[in-house]
Amino acid sequence: MSELLNDILFLPEAASTFAERIDTLHHFVVGTTMVMSTAVGLAALFFFFRYRRRLPAQATEYVVPTLKTEFLFVSVPLVFFLAWFGIGFRDFTWVTTPPKDAMDVYVMGKQWMWKFSYPEGPNGVNVLHVPANRPVRLLITSRDVLHSFYVPAFRIKMDALPGRYTQIWFEATKPGTYQVLCTEYCGLSHSKMLAEVVVLPQEEYENWIQEQRRGRLQDRQDALADNSLVPPVARMVEQGQVLAGTQGCLKCHSVDGSQHIGPTFLGMYDRVEQLEDGQSIRVDEAYITQSMMDPGAHLVAGYQNVMPTYQGKLQGPETAAIVEYIKSLRTPNVREGASEGPAYDAIQ
């Protein structure tokens, strides 16, 4: 029955728990609308025919409604509308209040793509993998203008606003691939801002994410480890962490993303920093090293030039260790608990 109705109404496949709730209400609303308007329409047609004009200047009776009739006119629609609203608002509250055990995914809209990231990695562009039958909370933001994250099959939609997060959640019921569309006009290629949600069965999802995380680690190690003779990166990182404490780096730079005297180390590596002089720079090994030796050379916007130089205070390997330590704090672009907040990109 409901399948048939969905076909008549051209509704896409319902693939989330919310979709089922929505469709029930949808059918109820469409049903009552049809019944009521057919009744009104038939009454009108009957009147048009029954009371057709017989004389050109026919006189008619003076008919006014009784108070009871008018009361009926007001109360019947009001009861129906409020009933719809009651159900609708209950569902709306439901879909905007994620359950406690929901898995978080960060979603960032950008002209004209969607970026997805999981708190512990990995990142992805335009493809979101989620497990089936598990609540997923989307924390949505934007880097430039307004976007809106819409998955027709899940019946969910939420605007992406620059400068803050919005949230919505869903629980996919069927494995499969579903389309994501942007529904808030966002410029030239608005209609090309498509993405996919891939719903995987729980085990497959676990495998996938393991693989992704391993792959990332592998990539990084491949890139860094030139041969087996140099100390492993992990050891350098440890060394760097100790050094950062003893050399006083952590007095001004936090590692948890909180605001302090200097920029946080968390996620610093590979980040594009806006500089005091209006230019921007990508934080790489060279920049980190330079900042330790000549802190005022490229000051990040919003920070005072108060850092002392470490020229001569650090040995070469020590510097490298600190650099490695900072690199190890590299995080996905959207993170939980990051101090940077949603970034707000340039519009080209």
């Binding site: 709730r21 929505i22 209400l25 949808h26 609303v29 469409v30 609308t33 009521m36 308007s37 509308f81 719809w84 609203f85 159900i87 609708g88 608002f89 209950r90 569902d91 709306f92 439901w94 879909v95 809106s148 819409y150 027709p152 019946r155 969910i156 939609k157 529904t183 808030e184």
Partner: peptide, 19 residues
């Protein structure tokens, strides 16, 4: 009018909004 009321039924607006 009725589709307007349906759109005002808060949860139904979620999939319909901006479509």
């Amino acid at each position: 009018g009725m589709t307007g009321i349906a759109l005002g039924t808060v949860s139904l607006d979620v999939p319909w909004h901006d479509t």
